[in-house]
Amino acid sequence: MAREKKAKAKMEQAKGKAKEAVGRAVGNERMTAEGKMEQAKGDARQSKEKAKDTFKH
Score class of each variant (00 low, 15 high):
2 A>I: 12
2 A>G: 07
3 R>P: 09
3 R>H: 04
3 R>E: 15
3 R>W: 14
3 R>F: 14
4 E>V: 15
5 K>E: 13
5 K>G: 02
6 K>P: 00
6 K>A: 12
6 K>C: 02
6 K>Q: 03
6 K>H: 06
7 A>G: 04
8 K>M: 09
9 A>C: 09
9 A>Y: 00
10 K>I: 01
12 E>A: 09
12 E>P: 07
13 Q>A: 00
15 K>W: 03
15 K>R: 06
15 K>H: 05
16 G>N: 01
16 G>W: 02
17 K>A: 05
17 K>S: 10
17 K>D: 05
17 K>R: 12
17 K>I: 01
18 A>T: 10
19 K>D: 10
19 K>P: 03
19 K>L: 10
19 K>E: 08
19 K>R: 06
20 E>Y: 03
20 E>V: 01
20 E>S: 06
20 E>D: 06
21 A>T: 12
21 A>I: 07
21 A>Q: 14
21 A>S: 13
22 V>E: 13
23 G>K: 11
23 G>M: 12
23 G>H: 13
23 G>D: 03
23 G>T: 12
24 R>K: 15
24 R>Y: 01
24 R>I: 07
24 R>V: 07
25 A>I: 15
25 A>F: 15
25 A>M: 15
26 V>M: 12
27 G>Y: 13
28 N>L: 03
30 R>P: 01
30 R>K: 09
31 M>T: 08
32 T>A: 12
32 T>C: 01
32 T>Y: 01
33 A>K: 10
33 A>N: 05
33 A>T: 13
33 A>Y: 15
34 E>V: 09
34 E>R: 12
34 E>H: 10
36 K>Y: 03
37 M>G: 00
37 M>W: 02
37 M>Y: 07
37 M>P: 05
37 M>N: 08
39 Q>A: 04
39 Q>V: 11
39 Q>M: 02
40 A>W: 02
40 A>L: 15
40 A>G: 14
40 A>H: 08
41 K>Y: 08
41 K>I: 10
41 K>S: 05
41 K>T: 05
42 G>S: 11
42 G>N: 00
43 D>H: 06
44 A>H: 05
45 R>E: 03
45 R>I: 02
46 Q>H: 02
46 Q>F: 03
46 Q>M: 02
46 Q>L: 07
46 Q>P: 03
47 S>E: 04
50 K>N: 05
51 A>G: 06
51 A>M: 14
51 A>T: 14
52 K>D: 11
53 D>K: 07
53 D>S: 14
54 T>F: 08
55 F>Q: 13
55 F>P: 06
56 K>P: 08
56 K>I: 10
57 H>F: 12
57 H>Y: 08
57 H>T: 03
57 H>G: 12
